[in-house]
């Protein structure tokens, strides 16, 4: 695949020699996740103080209650994110809602020391206010890493999609061999067109197939039909009717 520079795919070579593409998440999605987490955080504190308040008036006395609350604040403040990042999903509730998760730059799961580093350094990312340092750093690095991510060697990525994608769309057209031999890149472009076109409007499809006028000798609906037929021919290897799109 020719390297595209303007996307957010981060290519990483695994120990097994294969290249994988991590889909790095940007500051916008992460900010929303953070806002959700803050709301959850406040809710937890609120509920905790209610429960501890109730307990202390009934059982343990106000002094011990205050102490418990302080300990809980300490743990929540520094380890809320660590706790959730070490879970199987490797994401806080906010991140899970946004479909994000934290992984090591190597592509492997995030480890406890990494998670602790990135969350303790959150303090610096927050400075001088409203995550200004973190945001600046995010925008300056190719993987959208804030300072804590840089030191911990982690990235926030979109979690994998569910493995089985939606149903295949059948295209009813007869495959047609292209009039000229196409090279590898051209074939790949045709196949991608076939795969992605069901998501576009007809006008957009025709706009793109019009580019192929030298090949199809037709414009508009006719050109589109011929393009799809050629792509089908490529996909099925020159035989069979209909294809998975």
């Amino acid at each position: 695949m020719p390297t595209a520079l303007a996307d957010t795919l981060e290519s990483v070579e695994l120990a097994d020699g294969v290249q994988i593409h991590l889909r790095v998440a940007g500051p916008a999605a992460r900010s929303v996740a953070w806002l959700i987490d803050i709301l959850i955080f406040i809710a937890i504190i609120f509920i905790l103080s209610m429960v501890i308040g109730l307990l202390s008036s009934l059982l343990i006395g106000e002094e011990v209650g205050n102490g418990l609350l302080m300990l809980a604040m300490f743990i929540l403040n520094w380890f809320y994110n660590v706790f959730f990042e070490m879970s199987a999903k490797a994401a806080t509730p906010g991140q899970r809602h946004m479909g994000l998760k934290v992984v090591s730059v190597s592509g492997g799961p995030v480890r406890l020391p990494q998670s602790m580093i990135r969350n303790v350094l959150r303090v610096v990312d927050f400075m001088p206010g409203a995550y200004l340092f973190g945001l600046t750093c995010c925008l300056c690095t190719s993987r959208f890493q804030r300072l804590g991510d840089l030191v911990a060697d982690t990235v926030v990525v979109y979690a994998d999609k569910p493995m089985h994608e939606g149903s295949a769309i059948q295209v009813n057209a007869d495959p047609m061999p292209p009039p000229l031999p196409l090279n590898r890149e051209e074939q790949a472009a045709m196949l991608q067109f076939l795969e992605r076109s069901p998501r576009w409007s007809d006008a957009r499809k025709m706009e793109l197939s019009d580019v192929l006028e030298p090949l199809t000798k037709r414009r508009g609906m006719g050109g589109l039909l011929d393009t799809v037929r050629m792509a089908l021919w490529l996909q099925t290897g020159g035989g069979g009717k209909g294809g998975r799109a």
Partner: peptide
Amino acid sequence: MFGRAIVERLNTLAISGFR
């Protein structure tokens, strides 16, 4: 260049397998 669907499926598989 077998297309997005296959490559993405295998990419997901490689990432989660590695993990």
